[in-house]
């Protein structure tokens, strides 16, 4: 027995050492996640500093963007980012809601999975593919069939008419919003579907027991119960739309100006960076583009953080698809 007693302590101390090593490497990897976010924020701030120092708050309020005179203002890209995202949500929310209802309440069991997977695959398609499709397929269709109709039908109206005036370019703010809407539908509908599924059957059955129709149960039982999750899902979609780059770059037209018409070309923060960054000469130009990036980071971080906080209460595993 003396051999065992002699070996055991060494064996145990080796185990302890490996335990400590393994544990600290997992901890280090986990801390790297925090470090990454901090590093991203810090590097953007440092890169943006020269531009912010030079233009002060004027950077946020000016529309001018002129590499020749070295004058830069973020207003046009910020406006474009917010308008395209808002418009995309306007189009995407009803469709996503419908898809989520179809998948949770309506579809027969055999249809649920294939349709659900197909919608999820829409999220797997890379954004550059949306871009090339948007430019070569969607934009011509909108230009020839939809935009003339909008210009003739809505253009003469008071107030909103202004949004639909001008020549049908095909590419522009409206087209970008349309592509964005298709891209965020799978994200929003996946979250909505998951939160609808957390509604206890007992609640729905009580509704049916009182004689409610399927729609009445959905609108008066499911939706109120899932309200927080629905808003969280929409904000998650908004976060996607705000930061989406390649698809928008293809179809928005890349004009640094604020047009009153939705049919006119514009730009977004991410599209400006994607288009100009690799070719930007001069420190102020580069720094201004990084400052745009910092602005985008701030906006998306706020939206995504809010969305995640709203969704935090829900079962994490139910939301693993996003």
């Amino acid at each position: 027995m003396s051999t065992v007693a002699a070996i055991e302590p060494r064996h145990v101390s080796g185990q302890r050492l490996r335990e400590r090593l393994f544990r600290s490497s997992t901890l280090a990897a986990a801390l790297l996640v925090l470090l990454l976010l901090g590093g991203v924020a810090l590097s953007l701030l440092l890169g943006a500093w020269p531009a912010l120092k030079h233009f002060k708050l004027g950077f946020l309020t000016r529309e001018v963007w002129n590499p020749v005179t070295d004058q830069y203002g973020a207003l046009a890209p910020v406006y474009g980012t917010l308008v395209t995202s808002a418009l995309a949500l306007l189009l995407a929310i009803p469709v996503s809601f419908g898809i989520a209802i179809f998948l949770t309440e309506l579809a027969p069991a055999w249809l649920k999975r294939p349709v659900g997977v197909a919608i999820e695959l829409l999220a797997a398609v890379p954004s550059i593919i949306y871009g090339i499709w948007g430019l070569f397929v969607l934009a011509p269709v909108l230009q020839q069939h939809v935009q003339p109709w909008l210009i003739n039908g809505l253009g003469p109206l008071p107030l909103i008419g202004k949004l639909f005036q001008g020549p049908p370019f095909g590419i522009g703010v409206l087209t970008a919003s349309f592509v964005l809407a298709i891209m965020v539908i799978p994200f929003i509908s996946a979250v909505m579907r998951d939160v609808f599924e957390t509604v206890p059957d007992v609640l729905k059955e009580s509704g049916y027991g009182l004689g409610a129709t399927t729609w009445e149960v959905i609108w008066q039982v499911v939706v109120p119960y899932a309200r927080t999750g629905i808003i969280g899902g929409i904000m998650l979609g908004l976060g996607r739309a705000l930061g989406e780059t390649m698809a928008v770059t293809f179809v928005i037209g890349n004009a640094h100006r604020i047009g009153s018409s939705l049919l006119a070309p514009g730009t977004t923060i991410s599209a400006s960076i994607a288009n100009e960054f690799a070719e930007a000469v001069g420190d102020l130009y580069t720094s201004s583009l990084i400052a745009l990036g910092a602005l985008l980071f701030l906006i998306t971080f706020t939206v995504i953080a809010a969305a995640r906080l709203l969704l935090l209460r829900l079962d994490r595993r139910a939301l693993s698809s996003v």
């Binding site: 986990a30 801390l31 996640v33 925090l34 990454l36 976010l37 590093g39 991203v40 590097s43 953007l44 440092l46 890169g47 998650l236 976060g239 996607r240 705000l242 930061g243 989406e244 780059t245 991410s270 960076i273 994607a274 960054f277 990084i290 990036g293 985008l296 980071f297 998306t300 971080f301 995504i304 953080a305 969305a307 995640r308 906080l309 935090l312 994490r316 996003v322």
Partner: peptide, 24 residues
């Protein structure tokens, strides 16, 4: 905290990551 930050990174715009690595 890490879970939350990870979820934020999961949805962060990829162009921001590009800018970060450019600087780094």
């Amino acid at each position: 905290v890490i879970r939350f930050v990870n979820d934020v990174l999961l949805s962060a715009p990829s162009i921001i990551i590009g800018l970060f690595v450019y600087q780094l």
